[in-house]
C-alpha cells in the first residue's frame, strides 16, 4: 500500500490532483481511494486531499498520517504548518516552488523535489494552476506512474485548449525532474 498526502488551499485543485493520480493508478490496474479533507470549507483555507492505493480494494478509511509521498501545491503552507509530518523515513516530497525555496532539514533517506509548477502552468495553461505539472513531477520523482498513462488521463479529463496546455504541463513537470536527476 502506498499513501500520498496533498497539501493545498481550497480552490487550488488538490482534489483534481488526487483524482488524476487515482485515475492513473486505476489505469495501471491498481485500486486507488482518493478523498479530500476540508478544513474551514472556504476558498483559500488549508485543506488536504489524499490518495491511498493498493493492489486490492482499499478498506482503510482514515486520513493519512504517515505518507510515503507528500505533494505540496502551495509552498506558503510551509510557513507555520508541518507538511512533512509523519513522512516515511524514505519518503519523497514534491513541492510547487521556486529554486530558492527555503526547506526544513529532512531525514537522511528522504528526498525533496522542488518544481516550478506554477511557472510551467502559466506558460502552458495561462493560469497558475500547477497540479498537472506536479503530477508529472511526481511520476518522475517516484517512478510510481508512467508518463504516457498520465498524458492519457489528462487527455480524458480536459478538452480543447486546456487539454493541450495541461498535457504540456505534465510533460514539462516530468522532464524538469528527469533532468535534475541526471
Amino acid at each position: 500500500m502506498k499513501e500520498i498526502r496533498i497539501h493545498a488551499r481550497a480552490g487550488q485543485g488538490a482534489i483534481t490532483t488526487a483524482a488524476l493520480l487515482g485515475f492513473s493508478y486505476f489505469n495501471e490496474g491498481k485500486y486507488p481511494y482518493a478523498f479530500p479533507n476540508f478544513g474551514a470549507a472556504r476558498m483559500g483555507a488549508p485543506m488536504n486531499a489524499f490518495v491511498r492505493v493498493d493492489s486490492n480494494p482499499v478498506r482503510l478509511r482514515s486520513q493519512i498520517y504517515e505518507p510515503d509521498y507528500v505533494i505540496i501545491v502551495d509552498p506558503t503552507l510551509l510557513r507555520g504548518y508541518n507538511c512533512f509530518s509523519g513522512l516515511k523515513e524514505d519518503g519523497v516530497a514534491i513541492i510547487n516552488g521556486k529554486e530558492d525555496l527555503e526547506l526544513p532539514k529532512m531525514k537522511a533517506k528522504q528526498s525533496v523535489f522542488v518544481v516550478p509548477a506554477n511557472e510551467i502552468a502559466l506558460r502552458n495553461i495561462g493560469r497558475p494552476l500547477g497540479n498537472t505539472a506536479l503530477i508529472g513531477a511526481f511520476a518522475a520523482a517516484t517512478g510510481e506512474l508512467k508518463l504516457d498513462n498520465l498524458v492519457e488521463v489528462v487527455k480524458k479529463r480536459f478538452s480543447g485548449k486546456a487539454q493541450e496546455g495541461n498535457i504540456k504541463a505534465v510533460q514539462e513537470g516530468f522532464e524538469f525532474i528527469q533532468k535534475g536527476k541526471k
Partner: peptide
C-alpha cells in the same frame, strides 16, 4: 453512506 468518506471518495 458516510458523507465525504464515501460521497466524496473516489474508488473503483
Amino acid at each position: 453512506m458516510d458523507g465525504f468518506i464515501l460521497t466524496h471518495g473516489m474508488e473503483t
